[in-house]
């Protein structure tokens, strides 16, 4: 039986399958529900300084096979309410608390409340607009100087490990990874959703209530794998510090997990797959991964990690 255990900063997990942020995990009840499944770890919904309501619907649709579109609008109970969840609840699985803010001060405010409540690690959702005038057209994750500012501020305020979640909607993701790592990030999570829009030709308007949306699902998996590969290669070459990578994007099977691990990821996050199988997908993907590793002679995840990068070494 292959060993699926993962031990990275703040996260000691029985398997590498984590819930992705934004899926179900905004309340104690929802997190307990996922915790009782086969998931190895949890990621909360992104928590902001104050409570936020959902955007008008449709907020999440399956636009075509393998394509999920969503614009929920970062609905969350707010830092004070969620701090009670972090402090008062015992979850069976380790939890990465995802946070966001309008600026560095906003991130620090939420980070301190979560750390004080006992959070073991944080994920910074950098895919939100900056409150600074003139910065609204771009998200923080598209502006390396703002990534550096936010990550440095949070790292300066709390002692727990911090993972920076990167957007794929940039020119060269190694630039954003470098910004996060130079500011002290302990790990990277990628990718967030791919920016998208869908039009209903009969209605003559976008399908999603918010008009603009993010794309996820199996169709974005090769894109996510490419981004993970680019960052892993930069780490191998010594261009950026080597830290754990959480691979995210369209994972629905155990073989998909192996693909991300082979490109250098230490663990993965799973979100859209729940549309087709709810939380039961975790146990199914775990058994597929274990079977694949046993059949192919991989005793543990480390023995498989990064092996697909070997054939890419010559690329410059």
């Amino acid at each position: 039986m292959a060993d699926l255990g993962v031990d990275i900063p703040g996260l000691s997990m029985s398997n590498p399958l984590m819930l992705a942020s934004g899926i179900q995990g905004g309340s104690a009840a929802a997190l307990h529900r996922v915790s009782a499944s086969g998931a190895g770890g949890l990621v909360s919904k992104s928590i902001g300084p104050i409570p936020r309501e959902m955007y008008p619907g449709p907020v999440c649709v399956e636009a075509m096979d393998s394509v999920i579109l969503n614009a929920m609008g970062l609905p969350n109970p707010g830092a004070d309410k969620f701090a009670e969840v972090v402090k008062g609840e015992e979850f069976a699985k380790p939890m990465l608390v995802s946070i966001f803010g309008g600026d560095a001060e906003g991130y620090v405010e939420v980070a301190e409340k979560m750390a004080n409540a006992g959070a073991s690690c944080l994920e910074l959702n950098l895919s939100c607009p900056h409150a600074k005038p003139g910065s609204r057209a771009l998200i923080i994750g598209q502006q390396p100087e703002l990534i550096r500012e936010v990550v440095a501020a949070v790292k300066g305020a709390v002692d727990i490990p911090v993972y920076a979640k990167l957007s794929p909607n940039t020119t060269n993701i190694v630039v954003e990874a470098e910004a996060a790592l130079s500011a002290g990030a302990d790990g990277l999570a990628l990718i967030n959703t791919v920016s998208a829009i869908e039009v209903d030709p009969f209605a003559g308007r976008p399908v999603i209530g918010n008009l603009l949306c993010g794309m996820s699902g199996p169709a974005i998996r090769p894109i996510a794998q490419r981004k993970v590969a680019e960052i892993s290669l930069a780490m191998r070459r010594g261009e950026i510090p080597e830290v754990p990578i959480l691979g995210i994007g369209g994972i629905t099977t155990g073989l998909d997990v192996a693909r991300f691990i082979m490109l250098g990821a230490s663990a993965v996050q799973i979100g859209s797959a729940l549309v087709w199988g709810d939380v039961d997908v975790f146990a199914q993907i775990e058994s597929e991964l274990a079977e694949f590793m046993a059949q192919n002679g991989y005793p543990d995840l480390e023995s498989m990690r990064g092996i697909a990068l070997d054939s890419l070494e010559g690329l410059s």
Binding site: G22, I23, Q24, G25, G26, S27, A29, A30, H32, R33, A36, K45, M54, G57, V59, C60, E62, I68, N70, M72, P75, G271, S272, L274, V275, D278, V279
Partner: peptide, 20 residues
């Protein structure tokens, strides 16, 4: 019940989702 597809997690009753 905003999403209907077990994504948003806002329709919990006990440990179940009303949508699915």
């Amino acid at each position: 019940l905003p999403c209907s597809v077990a994504m948003c997690g806002l329709c919990m009753v006990g440990d179940k989702l009303t949508c699915v």
